[in-house]
Design a protein around this nucleic acid. Structure first.
Lengths: 95, 95
DNA sequence: TCTCGATGCTTCGATTTCCGACACAGTAAC
DNA sequence: GTTACTGTGTCGGAAATCGAAGCATCGAGA
């Protein structure tokens, strides 16, 4: 359940999700995450580095590790569900 | 991706997870969530009520809705991954 | 009827986290 | 050397979170 804690912090889910297609640089990553604050992005990245989910390449870009890819796979059902949920929400006039 | 926002708030993942086995009352739920702050729990619950993930029974206990159960199902791979991750972490002396 | 314990929920000040704008150093191009 | 981009740090204010305390309500027992 420790991972629920890790992912229960803002942006961590999103960051892993945005790295799914290969290495991304700091500034580009930031843009993909709705221009989140750079200080928080740095913080989150070091957390993910510590957790071995993300690794920094020689060219300083960030990429998912083996574990990170596992996390992404584990995340896919959640994202699929997210779509169902979104349509269920708009259908009955909520939001 | 709106769901990544919903779950990108502290405790929301955890709350859905703790409700997986049927209705739970406010105080009991609080205890299951590491005695999280009651004010925040109330806040999260109203968010989840609005999102149709959770419903309040006539006896005031909280339970997952149909959508909520879907979310729980979508969450299971993540929890399974969490276990792998945890053992991978302890194996190589991290944490 | 009067406690007593348990419940759901609220309030509020203190702490932690987040934001966002700015700045700095390094690199590559021109 | 100037321009333009990068990764990253700093810092003050805003927002989220915590945690302890305090309601009101309800059922069981005396």
């Amino acid at each position: 359940m420790a991972a629920l804690d890790l992912f229960g912090r803002r942006w961590n889910l999103r960051i892993v999700w945005e790295l799914r297609h290969g290495p991304v640089g700091f500034r580009a990553l930031r843009e993909r995450c709705d221009d989140m604050s750079s200080s928080v992005l740095r913080q989150r990245l070091t957390e993910l580095l510590d957790a071995r989910l993300v690794a920094q390449q020689p060219d300083t870009t960030y990429a998912l590790t083996e574990l990170g890819h596992g996390a992404h796979q584990a995340l896919r059902p959640l994202v699929r569900w997210s779509d169902q949920w979104a349509s269920a929400m708009t259908e009955d006039g909520a939001l």
